[in-house]
Write a protein that binds this DNA or RNA. Structure first.
Lengths: 167, 167
DNA sequence: CAGTATCCGGTGCGATACTG
DNA sequence: CAGTATCGCACCGGATACTG
């Protein structure tokens, strides 16, 4: 698929950079619950089902990365506390969550259908995630696409000889 | 040993089910390389950059889950060998990869831009992933959506437990 | 080439106890 | 309620060595 000479380094791959933030165990499930409306620590804890320390760690990583932000709140008679909400950067992860959900719905679901539906709030119809050509909006599948080096691509490294007769 | 009430009905969440297959470390990077055209073990190894045993493990998991399939090939003068290719089930993971890539491009990229572009093979224009209403095709953001229980939704879980083998 | 097997130090995970 | 602190253990990562 790639021009064979064009080796890129995996360090500056956007997938890897994203996974460095959200790729740890439980993190995407924490985000799922955030999208579902969870905000408080105990709420995440019971709904995600991971260990307390891990949840604390994940929330710290996510706020540190700017994906979530800590918002103060105060219940009457209680001291001030903080809850965790998605930032804009975090809200923009919705397509990733939905992509995983859609795939699970299609290929790993029970016979009775998906456990959760994502709907358009205004009209109630389901939301869908589509891959398409930015130009003519043709729907695209994996067979219609062609990856190629972008502006931030690093020049090929010629550290050692390259055989690579792939296809 | 394990408090039942602390368990969310997240076991049947499609996101979790998907992550049970592709959520381990390196797996999504292996899939990224598969989309980029990698097929042979050593090819994955150098491009993904993980340990041999982990790569073997991941490829086994993926073929076991039907995401990749082992295809025989024969180089002249060599014995028959196998390479790993994406199945239809695996090809359908492209949106998830692209969602992660797009987010990385938007929020974690270098100044010079994304290292890789996904283009429409036929016309050369970039591919894009859009979330929209299935009914009227309105583009949707996180603020426009509403999750709600689907047909496969489970109420609460009774005290009869299954295995706790998380992951 | 395409793996499997083994070893070993380190990190991350999971459960619980503890604190404010 | 919202976290820390702690501890045993599983798994990871990297380096070989071995097999077909």
């Amino acid at each position: 698929m790639f021009d064979e000479r064009q080796r890129y380094s995996a360090d500056n791959c956007s997938v890897k950079r994203t996974l460095d933030i959200v790729g740890e165990k439980w993190t995407l499930l924490v985000l799922r619950e955030a999208f579902y409306g969870a905000r408080r620590f105990e709420e995440f804890l019971t709904r995600v089902g991971c260990a307390r320390n891990l949840l604390a760690e994940r929330l710290n990583t996510l706020t540190g990365a700017g994906v979530m932000r800590r918002v103060p709140y105060q219940e009457p008679g209680q001291r001030e506390r903080y809850e965790s909400r998605l930032s804009d950067k975090g809200l923009d992860l919705l397509p990733a969550i939905i992509a995983l959900m859609q795939w699970g719905d299609r290929w790993q679901a029970d016979a009775d259908g998906p456990p959760v539906e994502i709907t358009h709030r205004d009209c109630g119809h389901p939301a869908e995630l589509v891959l398409r050509c930015a130009h003519d909006h043709t729907p695209l599948t994996a067979r219609d696409i062609q990856p190629r080096p972008g502006p931030g691509a690093q020049p090929a490294r010629s550290a050692h000889s390259d055989k690579s007769a792939a296809r």
